[in-house]
Design a protein around this nucleic acid. Structure first.
Lengths: 342, 342
DNA sequence: TTGTACGCGTTATCAA
DNA sequence: TTGATAACGCGTACAA
């Protein structure tokens, strides 16, 4: 067996409880004994057993990450490594570890969550699966378990802490940018229409159009579950309209990649014939041809703030509900061109 | 406090140990009491406390993931979500959880590892950081702690379990494919030259050339730390050679994306003027223009097998050292063309 | 087949 | 300032 607190106690000639206090740097221990104990720890190569500590202190110093199902396409999105970076950094600063769900389906994930919570495996949860899972949230609320959402909850918005962008404003600004380039026929290509994210952005888009005195056309709204197949058809439809759009707002760089691909196949030149503004500004936004004008939503910060505030809540249960809005900025590259007035 | 084994015992009129045995499905408990106990568990909504269980059984049912530093570029590679998928699925099947390091620098990660191991936080480790970290491996070996590497260790190869592709063969085949398209001036663009991965692939590439009776030229070997800056210069050099290459072997789709970008800027047409074979075949390989011919290295399987075999080793310490080779296959798309013989 | 009693390595309470 | 001692919730020899 490994070296325990008792071994250290023996060597330092103190009681185990004293050693424990030294570890916690309890101020009521004399400097002398502290040093003596610490020397003993060094000598024996002592390392506290985290599990035992967790059991006794009823806290694990672990954050659970509720990922989208590994089967889910969003799992592949570069968005992920990026939030992870933010979460990691924040967790690391506060000495928390990160543990993730491994489920493939929504139901497996739900079970994972139950295990984590009931099994007392983690102190709090970060929900990353944009598919706002009602069951999970309901469960966590019923258990009064600390959690935070990245993205906006579709329900109980005032009672749940979350970290999000101002998607309404971002979409509005983006649309206004296209309007300023003289575009009037602007289509919107978004993901799942049930996502709050998608809805918020549509609303912003709509608002911009309305303020510009333009009509909002349903035929200009496309929901591509994801690139390829579905997307291609939607794109086809869009271009077959009597008045096809001259500009596109696409809600995800990866989707834009698919759009680029389709436009290429159709022989339509991006920027010259079709302006595109994208969202997320992941690394590949600058690698496409042409490089994408994209809204940087500060993915890293989304993760960083989420973990930070979750930990705050864990360590101080009275911490109020928070809603944290991460700033965004439009990064202009070469996927948009000014439309010459006819 | 939550419901414990004792509460269940009381309700079912048995000893706590009996409840424990029912949980473990011990065959020496009568069907009758099993049912009675299970009913009590349901009634009370009992869930075993994982932490307590870990402490008593000296096993956590958690695998540690040693990630590249979150600052590292490789962290952004779509390779990651993909191994994660494999690791997740495998872990989930065996009821293991996944916990990851959160360190940014190599040194922080090393500390993370020490914490995980000494703190008895995890039962085993999967090393995902291709930068074969000598210190970590040394430490794990000295502790006789179960671990497995994804990729090939650069040292102690025979004494460490790992999961890898046959990178030598893959690179050789890829080169032969280009040779079969009449290319004779084939350059190699790889990552860090210290990586075993890079070395193996260079060797395969060299072998193919040699077998074809072609000379191996140092000037055709480029190590781009990663896309952009460094890559651009290297590319420039390559094209300024007296005999510039007509084909490229690039060891990572993401790097290829950068190469595509540069070629585009230089007005060189991919396939027509420059054939490219890439590695990894991540989702974006089919989204580029043109879609990439790329070696599918079965990233998912790398992760799946790694977790599976690590668990095997954890649960049966006598399990022998293993070296698992995951098959690859060349996926032909449109980034190569036959070179007309002059 | 089931119960008793102790151990896992800490933290925390209460005395001293 | 420090030391006993009792939790924390569960697993498991050993007994019965």
């Amino acid at each position: 067996m490994a070296i325990t607190i008792k071994d250290v106690a023996k060597l330092a000639n103190v009681a185990p409880s004293t050693v424990s206090r030294v570890i916690a740097d309890n101020p009521r221990i004399s400097q002398k004994t502290k040093e003596r104990v610490r020397k003993a720890m060094k000598e024996l190569g002592y390392h506290p057993n985290v599990i035992a500590r967790s059991l006794a202190s009823q806290s694990t110093k672990v954050l659970g990450l509720v990922m989208p199902g590994s089967a889910d396409v969003t799992f592949q999105n570069p968005f992920f490594p990026n939030v992870l970076r933010g979460l990691s950094e924040s967790a690391h600063e506060k000495n928390y570890a990160l543990q993730m769900t491994t489920g493939k389906t929504d139901d497996e994930i739900y079970q994972d969550v139950i295990q984590m919570v009931h099994g007392r495996r983690v102190d709090g949860l970060v929900l990353l699966n944009s598919k706002v899972d009602d069951k999970i949230i309901k469960f966590l609320r019923s258990q009064n378990f600390p959690f935070i959402i990245i993205g906006k909850p579709y329900k109980y918005e005032a009672e749940i802490s979350y970290v999000d962008n101002d998607n309404f404003r971002a979409a509005k600004e983006v649309t206004e940018y296209l309007l300023s380039l003289n575009h009037k026929r602007i289509a919107f290509i978004g993901g799942n229409r049930d996502l709050v994210l998608t809805i918020d952005r549509i609303l912003g888009y709509e608002k911009a159009l309305r303020e510009a005195g333009l009509e909002f056309r349903d035929s200009y709204i496309v929901h591509a579950e994801f690139l390829e197949q579905g997307g291609r058809e939607a794109m086809d439809e869009l271009l077959r309209l009597d008045e096809p759009p001259t500009a596109l707002v696409v809600t995800d760089d990866l989707m834009t990649l698919g759009v680029l691909h389709m436009l290429d196949e159709m022989g339509i030149s991006v920027a010259k014939q079709m302006s595109i503004v994208s969202f997320n500004n992941v690394y590949l936004a600058q690698m496409t041809q042409p490089p994408l004008t994209s809204v940087d939503i500060n993915i890293f910060s989304l993760g960083y703030e989420a973990a930070k505030n979750l930990i705050l809540k864990i360590e101080n249960p009275k911490e109020p509900i928070k809603r944290i809005i991460i700033p965004h900025q439009l990064v202009i590259r070469s996927s948009c061109e000014k439309l010459e007035r006819k």
